[in-house]
Amino acid sequence: MSDTTIKKPRPKHLDLRVIRLPLPGLVSILHRVSGAGLFLMLPALLWLFGSSVGSPEEMAKAKSVVANPLVKLVLFGLLWAYLHHFCAGIRFLLLDMHKGLDLPTARKSAGAVLAVSLTLTVLIGAKIFLG
């Protein structure tokens, strides 16, 4: 960098209460949060999957566990996590291929990721839990 470059003093906020993330930033951090959540709950998800295809006793046990409203809430959260990670992941793959890199498009696609994943969560969640 040349010496003539003037370093412009920029405001720097790393305080989470001060930072206002733009939509693409929100999608990015939620991608990380949802991924971490899914990883942490992997044992529970594997157990649930195993029970769902297991013996009738295992199936009944899983059903009684899932009947708990708190468990339902966690599963609802994990459903969102999967869908958000899925939608945001596809957006990142497209960005990797230099599709939608300009700011207005990137903002729009970030908004679309949030909207689509939340809508799908409500629709699929309602279908699964309310029948």
């Binding site: 992997l42 044992p43 594997l46 999957f49 195993g50 295809v53 297991g54």
Partner: peptide
Amino acid sequence: GYAGWAAQILWRL
């Protein structure tokens, strides 16, 4: 370990 678990779930079917 999870990979082993997944294999066990699927090949028990």
